[in-house]
Design a protein around this nucleic acid. Structure first.
Lengths: 142, 142
DNA sequence: CTCTGTGCAAAGGATTTGCACTACG
DNA sequence: CGTAGTGCAAATCCTTTGCACAGAG
C-alpha cells in the first residue's frame, strides 16, 4: 500500500508534465513510508539518510508541488513548522500523540452529514476533510 | 461592548494574579477596539500609535497570556503570521478554500461523542482535535 | 540539446530568549 | 521593597529567493 502511494504520486507528477527526478522519487518514497505527518525539515532529514545529496529546498519545493496536485496537505498547528499529511486515501483520520508523535490511524467517519450541513450553510463546496485528535497514546500515559 | 471586552479582560488578568500594567491596558484596549483578527505585529504597531513606549515583545507575551486565560485564540493560516481572534465561543473549526486559501470559521461541533468512542477504542487520552474541511468557497466557485 | 529541476548560500519574516531596568501592588 | 513585567537586541527557527550548474526527456 505504501507502494501504491508512490505509484500514485509518481503518476500524478508525470501526468502533469513534471519530471520524475531522483530527488523527487526519494522524497515521495519517504513520504509514503512515513504515512504522512512530518514537517518539511523532518522529511528532509529522513530523505537524506537514504539519499544524501537531496537538499532541504528540494523537499520544500516538492511538497509544494504535491500540494498543488492535491496529494498532500499542510497542517498548521501552532507557531512551529507546518506538518504535511497525505490526502490520497480519502477516509481515514489520525490520533496524534503529543508525547511521542506516534500517529495512529482510524477510519470512523461520521462526518458526511456535518460536511453537508456546513457546506450548505456557507455555500462552500466541500472536497475533503481532515480530522485529527491530539492527546496521549497508551504507552505515553504512564 | 468594546468596553465590556476590556473590563472582562482586565478582570481576568487581575483575578489570575497578573498585574495590570500600562502596557497591558493599552494592548487589551486596542485588541478589543479592533474586534480581533490581527497579527501580533499589526497589533503592536496599532498599540504604538497610542502608547509609543510599548515593545513588540510585550505584545507577544500579552497575547500569550490572554491565550492561556482563554480570552483570545491564535489562528494559523498558512506560513505567515498567526492571527489572534477574540474567543467568544469554545469550539470552532475551519473551512479552507483550496483556491484562495481563505479560512472560514464555524463552530458546529459534533465531535465529543466520536472523541469518546475513539479514545476508548484505542485507549488514547484525547486532549483536543482538529477538524478542517477543504474545498472551494463561494467566490471561488465561478 | 534544451529547459526544468537542483543545491547552495544568503535573505527574509515571525517569534523567542537573555538580561538589566522599571514600576505595580 | 520585592518580584512580575518590560524593552532592547540578538538569536533562532522556518521558509523563500537568486543564481549557476546538472540531468531528464
Amino acid at each position: 500500500m505504501s507502494d501504491e502511494t508512490i505509484q500514485l504520486m509518481e503518476k500524478a507528477l508525470h501526468d502533469n508534465g513534471f519530471r520524475l527526478t531522483a530527488a523527487r522519487r526519494a522524497i515521495v518514497a519517504m513520504l509514503s513510508r512515513t504515512g504522512g505527518h512530518v514537517s518539511a525539515d523532518e522529511l528532509a532529514d529522513l530523505v537524506r539518510t537514504e539519499a544524501p545529496g537531496v537538499g532541504r529546498m528540494t523537499v520544500y519545493r516538492t511538497l509544494d508541488l504535491l500540494h498543488e496536485l492535491e496529494l498532500v496537505r499542510p497542517v498548521y498547528q501552532g507557531t512551529g513548522a507546518a506538518h504535511y499529511v497525505l490526502m490520497e486515501d480519502g477516509h481515514h483520520h489520525h490520533l496524534v500523540c503529543s508525547t511521542c508523535d506516534r500517529v495512529i490511524e482510524f477510519d470512523d467517519c461520521v462526518l458526511e452529514e456535518v460536511e453537508k450541513v456546513v457546506g450548505q450553510r456557507f455555500n462552500f463546496e466541500v472536497k475533503g476533510h481532515l480530522l485529527e485528535f491530539y492527546g496521549r497514546c497508551q504507552e505515553c500515559q504512564t
